[in-house]
Write a protein that binds this DNA or RNA. Structure first.
Lengths: 229, 229
DNA sequence: ATGTACCAATCATCCTACAACTTTTAAAGG
DNA sequence: CCTTTAAAAGTTGTAGGATGATTGGTACAT
């Protein structure tokens, strides 16, 4: 049997090393990485090779280059960038269905694996939602609502689930924000949050899944309504 | 409000055009795309610019370059490639949970949207599974089993779901194949297939979801068992 | 203090050259 | 004629240099 030569290419080696440095937090998100010439010295490759590596990571969404200014770290997770790019081309309702699938499963896992800290965070989110409603602060309400759901998913302790969910929710809400007219009165079904919280707290998988389903049904109805305008 | 200049860069333009040509099927998977110099003429950019675009798509998993030979199309879906790369670094059991989430939702949607053709394909898969078991052909059984589940997901008619599911199942089974000893007798719980089929046929969302859950529980138990060896 | 012009840093694009590898072609030997 | 071998052509990989475009800061004049 002939084995493929498979000698790793220089460009991929450099890209992989940069990726690792980002994932390891050596260069943090938002930070500027050294200019091309320094990296050329650091990795001891030609400028072309280095640029191809950088470009691959830019396309993947990890980096962002700004002519004249430099290159900054845009994200530490390439899957999110791929999802974002993909979802832009997909129907919003399809994305909602997938989100439901992920959050439903996440809630069940959260009922198993949630920590005490998770519960505290969830309670705080509920409090913030209530406060935002009282002050008619829609922006803050949405932020707290998102944080609540993201905390549920994070409580699942499943990293793949978390990384898939975050960009999805982000995109759904940017969609929704565009659609939302500021004069539409918004209602807060606090019971759903409270009951989901209770289910997760008491390790009740089935109840948690059921409340996610109810919540998503409401959201879907709202979205469909908004899209009709 | 100041809007970002955001003038699209040449490299990204070229990458985007190539991506579109692949997605549109102008260059099919496995096919060789024209050599660099021809593409340089076609897109009217320098070789460096073209190479950076190609490299971005190679890193994303859409293309594969072979020095001395040429560049071939590796996949038509960049999300799948990103997922494959990601999942390699993730625990198998996490992937199983996400697969369960997706397939559960897919089964519910399939119960709504399945076509008559979908039902025929499902029946054929079940038949092939039964035949493979009779002939003790493990390879064929797995192939037919995978096809059954993929057909369920495709019946959901949700493209995002389909594109997320396919690479996931692929990876799970390559994992499982490595683990499976050929002498372990394999059992076929045909009832699960038949009952899931019946639920989808009769538009019974809840039953479909329940049978996916049962199936996944069995699979998870098998995987855990195998991993202990 | 403010606005303008200039300068330096940085990325974007282009060009040429050669190396490494693969495929095809042609030649040589049987 | 067929097989083996060697040369040639084709293709991607890497290197280095040159110029343009954009940004951010500095110094100067007002």
């Amino acid at each position: 049997m002939i084995r493929k030569t498979n000698r790793t290419q220089l460009v991929e080696q450099v890209a992989s090393q940069i990726e690792k440095l980002i994932e390891a937090g050596y260069w943090t998100v938002g930070e500027k990485i050294p200019p091309e010439m320094e990296l050329v010295d650091k990795f001891d490759v030609s400028r072309n090779t280095l640029r191809e590596a950088i470009r691959a990571l830019v396309h993947a969404g990890l980096l962002e280059t700004r002519q004249g200014s430099g290159t900054i770290v845009r994200s530490a997770n390439s899957l999110g960038a791929a999802l974002r790019r993909y979802i832009k081309k997909t129907a919003l309702l399809e994305t909602l269905d997938v989100r439901l699938a992920l959050e439903n499963q996440a809630a069940q896992l959260a009922a198993e694996h949630r920590s005490e800290t998770d519960l505290l965070t969830l309670e705080e989110c509920i409090k913030n939602c209530r406060k935002a409603v009282k002050n008619h602060n829609r922006e803050k309400f949405i932020a707290s609502d998102i944080r609540f759901h993201q905390t549920v998913v994070q409580s699942s302790k499943n990293q793949l689930l978390i990384d898939l969910y975050e960009p999805m929710v982000e995109i759904i809400y940017t969609f929704v924000e565009d659609l939302m007219a500021m004069d539409v009165p918004f209602k807060y079904e606090e019971e759903l949050h409270l009951e989901l919280f209770a289910a997760i707290q008491s390790h009740d998988k089935n109840a948690a899944a059921a409340y996610v389903d109810s919540y998503m049904e409401v959201l879907r109805k709202d979205v469909v309504e908004m899209m009709e305008d």
